[in-house]
Amino acid sequence: MNPRTWRHFAATCMSHVIACGRTRFCQEYREVSEMLRHVRAVHDSVLKGFVLFFGVLVGFIAVTVSMNIVLRLIGVSTVEWVGEVAEYSIYVGAFAAAPWVLRLGLHVKIDILSKTLPRAGARALDMFADFVGLTVCLSIAYFSAGAAYNAFESNSAIYKSLVIPEWPLLAVIPASFLLMAIEFVLRIVDSKPDAADAAPVSGGF
């Protein structure tokens, strides 16, 4: 076999291998991104549900607080737990809704630096911020899960006009931060612009 034929053969083989590899890679990539899309879809609908849940809690607060005013004005004794339940509601609701707010990119941030950097630099900076965010979320999730577990172990409760075990309340934070950690992971592996850039419909503050 002369060197020339040999070189030709080698080149053909190489290109074949590369092409083959590329299709396989493409396929795998497609599978992975398909899977990611699926994860996102599930993740998203769960998170949206939590937002509406908080919204309904706020509506419930408005109704029960108003109800107490009416009760007081007509001289009937008011419902004692309204204030307490409202307090728990805004806490649980705020952390339940937080992951979707993060997904939309609505948690206020100061992106002056990333806006002035060139595209590649901005991308790297965003990636870095996402990693920091992921670290923060995982740390909070880990240590707060410990707190919730300890509260569960020691049976601690909050004694107000309602007696409520402490652990479900404390479990809200690790759950919320775990969901937000997932969001940061999704951002890192599957870079996507903030959905918020598309359409802000909110009245804001």
Binding site: V51, G55, F205
Partner: peptide
């Protein structure tokens, strides 16, 4: 539905900073 959801988003954003 929209009003409640939008309230929830903004409130969550504010309260997380408060936390």
């Amino acid at each position: 539905n929209t009003a409640l959801s939008e309230t929830a988003k903004v409130a969550s954003m504010i309260l997380l900073i408060v936390a």
